Amino acid sequence: MTTSGNRGGASGLQTLLVDVAAPLALFYALHAAGVDDLTALVMAGAPPAIKTVVSLARGCRVEPVALAVFVAMTVGTLASLITGDPRELLMRNALLSLPFGVWTLASLWLRRPLTFRVTQTLFPHRADLMDELWESDPRFRRAWRSVTVMWGGVLLLDCALRVLMAATLPVPAVPALDTALTLVTLVAMQVPTHVFLYRSGSWHLLFGRRRAPSMKESVA
């Protein structure tokens, strides 16, 4: 089902607020109030967990990424409660980076790589054009496979960095640094991603100010 641009933007803003901003603000508010690190981390995970549970209860479609975050949070919370070590809970984002990195690289053997599918989800009005270019342009396919290798490798490196931060840095410093690492990685990776698409000669078709007509539109 196609999603409109306004709806997609609203959904992205909601995800940013509930899954990123709210847990971070809640953790540091609780920490400032004198709540211990483990309790503050567990309670800070409540907003995205509640959102996922409510969506499931309502029978709404839950995005795979959101479900993966919920599973990682649950596993991390259980492990930390058993051991009493808040660092176990800080490892939860590494639990996401590792399988996503492996999944991204493994998708190279699928009909379409994961990065291609994710981009189609983000830009549904360009999905048909992307499929047409994939079928007709070998350079386009090579570009997306290169992008996939790059993102898979970065996700594995991201996992190692998160484990290192969780194991060595003061617990109160990790949530902010963890969030900063996510945002910096997402922004920085746009540059090489666009470079690969520019070199394939198809960036302007997908993201230029004026989108070229698709094959179906041309025939019509």
Rank of each mutant, 00 (worst) to 15 (best):
D37T: 10
G153A: 08
P23I: 00
A106F: 06
P86G: 07
P213S: 11
P192C: 05
D85R: 00
R7I: 13
V195S: 12
P64K: 12
F140H: 06
V53E: 02
A143N: 05
A46L: 11
L30Q: 08
R58I: 14
Q14C: 05
R87G: 03
I50T: 06
E63Q: 03
R209A: 03
L157P: 07
W109V: 15
V118T: 10
P170Q: 04
V149E: 05
A32M: 04
H125E: 07
A176T: 02
N6T: 15
A94S: 00
L164I: 10
R111E: 12
D131I: 00
L183N: 02
S80M: 07
L41N: 08
F207S: 15
G5A: 04
A40Y: 04
L156T: 03
L13N: 05
A173K: 01
A79L: 13
T83R: 05
A57K: 00
T77A: 10
L157W: 12
W203Q: 09
Q190M: 10
N6S: 10
Y198S: 15
F140K: 00
A166I: 00
W109R: 14
V219C: 09
A25T: 00
A167W: 03
M165L: 11
L122M: 05
V75I: 14
M150C: 04
I82M: 09
G153S: 13
D19T: 01
L108V: 15
V18E: 10
F70Y: 08
E63A: 10
M215G: 09
H31C: 04
V187S: 05
T104F: 10
P23E: 11
T39P: 12
T52R: 02
L122N: 01
P172G: 01
F123N: 02
A143W: 03
R87P: 01
L206P: 02
L114A: 15
R211M: 12
T193R: 06
T179Q: 04
D137R: 00
A21S: 09
C60A: 14
W151E: 12
T185A: 13
G152V: 13
T115H: 03
G84C: 06
L155K: 03
A176D: 01
P138C: 08
R111N: 11
A173I: 01
L186V: 13
Q120H: 00
P23A: 01
R162T: 01
A10V: 14
M73H: 09
S55A: 14
R111F: 04
E132Y: 05
V18F: 03
L183A: 09
V171N: 08
C60P: 03
S80W: 05
V20Y: 14
T83G: 05
V65H: 08
L67N: 07
W144D: 09
T39F: 12
R199D: 14
M73W: 08
G153K: 05
T148I: 14
S55P: 06
V102N: 07
R162W: 15
L169I: 02
K216W: 15
P64H: 10
V118M: 02
M215C: 08
A176V: 00
L205S: 12
L156Q: 02
F123Y: 08
A66L: 11
L164T: 14
F140Q: 03
V35A: 15
C159V: 01
L177R: 06
A57E: 00
D36G: 14
F100K: 09
T77R: 02
T77L: 04
L122V: 06
V174I: 07
V187D: 09
V54G: 11
N93F: 09
T115M: 13
L169W: 14
A72F: 08
Y198C: 15
